[in-house]
Amino acid sequence: MSIHVKICGITDAETANIAAKAGARWLGFVFFEASPRDVSLQNAMKMRPRLPSSVERVGVFVDAPFSRIEAAVDALDLDYVQLHGLEYPSDAKRIRDQLGVSVIKAYGIREENDLDQAAQFDDVTDLSLYDAKPPRGAKLPGGNAISFPWRIMQTRSISKPWLLAGGLTSVNLQEAIEASGAAAVDISSGVESAPGVKSHEKIQEFLNAAKAIT
Protein backbone atom coordinates (compact mmCIF):
# COMPACT_ATOMS: atom_id res chain seq x y z
CA MET A 1 0.00 0.00 0.00
CA SER A 2 1.46 3.36 -0.97
CA ILE A 3 -0.53 5.25 1.67
CA HIS A 4 -0.10 4.06 5.26
CA VAL A 5 -3.28 4.06 7.33
CA LYS A 6 -4.05 4.28 11.03
CA ILE A 7 -7.54 3.19 12.01
CA CYS A 8 -8.19 4.98 15.30
CA GLY A 9 -10.81 4.60 17.99
CA ILE A 10 -10.97 0.81 17.93
CA THR A 11 -12.83 -0.69 20.89
CA ASP A 12 -12.99 -4.43 20.15
CA ALA A 13 -10.74 -7.20 18.88
CA GLU A 14 -12.99 -8.15 15.96
CA THR A 15 -12.68 -4.69 14.44
CA ALA A 16 -8.95 -4.68 15.10
CA ASN A 17 -8.49 -7.92 13.19
CA ILE A 18 -10.65 -6.75 10.30
CA ALA A 19 -8.65 -3.53 10.01
CA ALA A 20 -5.36 -5.42 10.14
CA LYS A 21 -6.47 -7.92 7.50
CA ALA A 22 -7.65 -5.08 5.24
CA GLY A 23 -4.20 -3.46 5.36
CA ALA A 24 -4.01 -0.97 8.24
CA ARG A 25 -0.49 -0.24 9.49
CA TRP A 26 -1.53 1.13 12.90
CA LEU A 27 -4.46 0.48 15.22
CA GLY A 28 -5.42 3.30 17.56
CA PHE A 29 -6.97 2.79 21.00
CA VAL A 30 -8.33 5.81 22.85
CA PHE A 31 -7.78 6.09 26.60
CA PHE A 32 -9.89 9.19 27.27
CA GLU A 33 -13.11 8.87 29.24
CA ALA A 34 -14.85 11.81 27.52
CA SER A 35 -14.60 10.03 24.17
CA PRO A 36 -17.27 7.63 22.85
CA ARG A 37 -14.29 5.53 21.76
CA ASP A 38 -12.77 5.23 25.22
CA VAL A 39 -11.20 1.90 26.18
CA SER A 40 -10.85 1.13 29.88
CA LEU A 41 -7.72 -0.55 31.18
CA GLN A 42 -9.81 -3.59 32.11
CA ASN A 43 -11.21 -3.95 28.60
CA ALA A 44 -7.76 -3.37 27.11
CA MET A 45 -6.36 -6.30 29.08
CA LYS A 46 -9.24 -8.53 27.98
CA MET A 47 -8.79 -7.50 24.36
CA ARG A 48 -5.02 -7.92 24.23
CA PRO A 49 -4.78 -11.71 23.66
CA ARG A 50 -7.12 -11.45 20.65
CA LEU A 51 -5.39 -8.57 18.89
CA PRO A 52 -3.38 -9.10 15.69
CA SER A 53 0.37 -9.17 16.29
CA SER A 54 1.28 -7.93 12.81
CA VAL A 55 0.00 -4.36 13.27
CA GLU A 56 1.45 -1.63 15.49
CA ARG A 57 -0.69 -0.48 18.41
CA VAL A 58 -1.13 3.17 19.33
CA GLY A 59 -2.59 4.41 22.61
CA VAL A 60 -4.19 7.86 22.39
CA PHE A 61 -4.13 10.08 25.48
CA VAL A 62 -5.29 13.61 26.31
CA ASP A 63 -3.34 15.28 29.14
CA ALA A 64 -3.18 11.96 30.97
CA PRO A 65 -0.97 11.43 34.02
CA PHE A 66 2.19 9.41 33.44
CA SER A 67 0.92 6.58 35.67
CA ARG A 68 -2.16 6.06 33.50
CA ILE A 69 -0.11 6.05 30.31
CA GLU A 70 2.29 3.53 31.83
CA ALA A 71 -0.61 1.29 32.86
CA ALA A 72 -2.12 1.42 29.37
CA VAL A 73 1.21 0.63 27.72
CA ASP A 74 1.44 -2.48 29.90
CA ALA A 75 -2.21 -3.44 29.48
CA LEU A 76 -2.20 -3.35 25.68
CA ASP A 77 1.52 -3.81 24.93
CA LEU A 78 1.54 -0.51 23.04
CA ASP A 79 4.12 0.34 20.40
CA TYR A 80 3.25 4.05 20.33
CA VAL A 81 1.84 6.65 22.68
CA GLN A 82 -0.06 9.46 20.95
CA LEU A 83 -0.36 12.71 22.86
CA HIS A 84 -3.45 14.63 21.81
CA GLY A 85 -3.68 17.32 24.48
CA LEU A 86 -1.62 20.22 25.79
CA GLU A 87 1.39 18.13 26.77
CA TYR A 88 4.92 19.54 27.00
CA PRO A 89 8.02 18.28 25.17
CA SER A 90 9.31 17.08 28.55
CA ASP A 91 6.25 14.80 28.81
CA ALA A 92 7.00 13.24 25.43
CA LYS A 93 10.65 12.74 26.34
CA ARG A 94 9.82 11.05 29.63
CA ILE A 95 7.37 8.69 27.96
CA ARG A 96 9.81 7.73 25.24
CA ASP A 97 12.79 7.35 27.58
CA GLN A 98 11.11 5.57 30.49
CA LEU A 99 8.48 3.44 28.74
CA GLY A 100 10.49 2.49 25.65
CA VAL A 101 7.72 3.35 23.19
CA SER A 102 7.62 5.63 20.18
CA VAL A 103 5.74 8.91 20.58
CA ILE A 104 3.29 10.65 18.26
CA LYS A 105 2.30 14.25 18.97
CA ALA A 106 -0.97 15.51 17.52
CA TYR A 107 -1.45 19.15 16.55
CA GLY A 108 -4.71 20.98 15.95
CA ILE A 109 -4.57 22.87 12.65
CA ARG A 110 -6.80 25.59 11.30
CA GLU A 111 -4.35 27.91 9.53
CA GLU A 112 -0.75 27.84 8.34
CA ASN A 113 0.74 29.32 11.52
CA ASP A 114 -0.61 26.38 13.52
CA LEU A 115 2.09 24.24 11.95
CA ASP A 116 4.68 26.06 14.06
CA GLN A 117 3.64 24.01 17.11
CA ALA A 118 5.60 21.00 15.92
CA ALA A 119 9.08 22.52 16.10
CA GLN A 120 9.39 22.26 19.89
CA PHE A 121 8.57 18.53 19.81
CA ASP A 122 10.77 17.48 16.91
CA ASP A 123 13.60 16.13 19.07
CA VAL A 124 11.40 14.12 21.42
CA THR A 125 8.82 12.51 19.11
CA ASP A 126 8.88 9.96 16.31
CA LEU A 127 5.80 10.98 14.31
CA SER A 128 3.59 14.05 14.00
CA LEU A 129 -0.16 13.99 13.43
CA TYR A 130 -1.89 17.02 11.93
CA ASP A 131 -5.60 17.07 12.75
CA ALA A 132 -8.31 19.69 12.36
CA LYS A 133 -8.46 22.05 15.32
CA PRO A 134 -11.73 21.29 17.13
CA PRO A 135 -14.54 23.84 16.92
CA ARG A 136 -15.01 26.10 19.91
CA GLY A 137 -16.86 24.33 22.68
CA ALA A 138 -16.02 20.85 21.43
CA LYS A 139 -15.34 18.24 24.12
CA LEU A 140 -12.94 16.18 22.02
CA PRO A 141 -9.58 17.29 20.55
CA GLY A 142 -10.03 14.93 17.59
CA GLY A 143 -12.57 12.63 15.96
CA ASN A 144 -14.89 15.55 15.22
CA ALA A 145 -15.40 14.74 11.51
CA ILE A 146 -14.05 18.11 10.37
CA SER A 147 -11.06 18.94 8.20
CA PHE A 148 -8.72 21.87 7.65
CA PRO A 149 -7.39 23.30 4.34
CA TRP A 150 -5.15 20.40 3.32
CA ARG A 151 -3.01 22.55 1.02
CA ILE A 152 -1.53 24.16 4.16
CA MET A 153 0.68 21.10 4.57
CA GLN A 154 2.58 21.93 1.38
CA THR A 155 3.54 25.42 2.54
CA ARG A 156 6.27 24.03 4.80
CA SER A 157 9.13 21.60 4.51
CA ILE A 158 8.37 18.95 7.13
CA SER A 159 11.27 16.63 7.86
CA LYS A 160 9.62 14.37 10.45
CA PRO A 161 7.25 11.63 9.22
CA TRP A 162 3.63 12.68 9.69
CA LEU A 163 0.01 11.63 9.35
CA LEU A 164 -2.95 13.63 8.09
CA ALA A 165 -6.22 13.47 10.05
CA GLY A 166 -9.56 15.21 10.24
CA GLY A 167 -12.70 14.67 8.22
CA LEU A 168 -11.27 11.98 5.96
CA THR A 169 -13.47 9.44 4.16
CA SER A 170 -13.00 6.96 1.35
CA VAL A 171 -14.63 9.55 -0.94
CA ASN A 172 -12.27 12.46 -0.25
CA LEU A 173 -9.07 10.55 0.47
CA GLN A 174 -7.62 10.98 -3.02
CA GLU A 175 -8.27 14.73 -2.91
CA ALA A 176 -6.76 15.01 0.56
CA ILE A 177 -3.58 13.20 -0.49
CA GLU A 178 -3.15 15.30 -3.62
CA ALA A 179 -3.72 18.56 -1.74
CA SER A 180 -1.59 17.79 1.31
CA GLY A 181 1.13 15.50 0.00
CA ALA A 182 0.54 13.11 2.90
CA ALA A 183 2.05 9.63 2.83
CA ALA A 184 0.10 8.44 5.88
CA VAL A 185 -3.38 9.14 7.24
CA ASP A 186 -5.40 8.65 10.41
CA ILE A 187 -9.14 8.03 10.36
CA SER A 188 -11.72 7.50 13.08
CA SER A 189 -15.17 9.06 12.61
CA GLY A 190 -14.95 8.58 8.83
CA VAL A 191 -15.25 4.81 9.25
CA GLU A 192 -18.10 4.84 11.76
CA SER A 193 -21.83 4.28 11.51
CA ALA A 194 -22.33 6.30 14.74
CA PRO A 195 -19.93 7.99 17.18
CA GLY A 196 -17.75 5.25 18.59
CA VAL A 197 -19.29 2.50 16.44
CA LYS A 198 -16.89 1.31 13.76
CA SER A 199 -18.33 0.12 10.45
CA HIS A 200 -16.43 -2.86 9.10
CA GLU A 201 -17.64 -2.04 5.60
CA LYS A 202 -16.38 1.55 5.81
CA ILE A 203 -13.01 0.37 7.12
CA GLN A 204 -12.68 -1.96 4.14
CA GLU A 205 -13.76 0.77 1.72
CA PHE A 206 -11.26 3.25 3.15
CA LEU A 207 -8.37 0.83 3.03
CA ASN A 208 -9.30 -0.16 -0.51
CA ALA A 209 -9.25 3.53 -1.45
CA ALA A 210 -5.82 3.90 0.11
CA LYS A 211 -4.50 0.91 -1.83
CA ALA A 212 -5.76 2.43 -5.08
CA ILE A 213 -3.69 5.60 -4.66
CA THR A 214 -0.38 5.43 -6.52
Rank of each mutant, 00 (worst) to 15 (best):
W162P: 02
K21P: 01
F29H: 05
I3K: 01
F66S: 06
M47N: 13
D77F: 14
S35L: 00
S193D: 12
K46E: 07
G85N: 11
A194M: 12
A75F: 03
F31T: 10
V5F: 04
S67V: 13
H4R: 15
D186L: 08
A212Y: 05
A20R: 00
D114G: 04
L163H: 12
A210D: 02
F32L: 06
P141A: 13
Q82M: 07
K160D: 12
A92L: 14
C8S: 07
V55D: 03
W150P: 04
D123N: 15
E178P: 01
Q120H: 06
I109Y: 14
Q42I: 13
A19V: 02
K133G: 01
A194K: 10
V39C: 15
D77L: 05
A209W: 01
G59C: 04
L129N: 04
T125Y: 06
V55Q: 04
Q120S: 13
P149W: 14
K160H: 04
L51V: 07
P52L: 01
S90F: 04
V55P: 07
G23C: 06
A72F: 15
E175W: 12
A22D: 08
L76C: 07
E201S: 12
A24C: 06
R57I: 15
Q204Y: 08
P141Q: 05
I109H: 09
A212G: 11
D97Q: 09
L140T: 09
A71G: 02
D12E: 08
D79H: 11
L163I: 03
M45C: 02
G108Y: 10
D74K: 15
D12S: 11
S180N: 11
E14N: 13
P52N: 00
V171Y: 12
A75P: 08
P135F: 04
I10A: 02
S199V: 03
G100V: 14
L164M: 07
S147R: 00
V185E: 13
V58C: 03
R94C: 14
G23H: 04
K160W: 07
G190R: 03
V197D: 09
L207N: 08
L129I: 07
V191Q: 03
L168H: 05
S189C: 14
W150F: 06
V101D: 00
V55H: 07
P161M: 12
Y88T: 11
R110A: 15
I7A: 05
D63L: 13
K21N: 09
S180K: 12
S67C: 03
G190C: 08
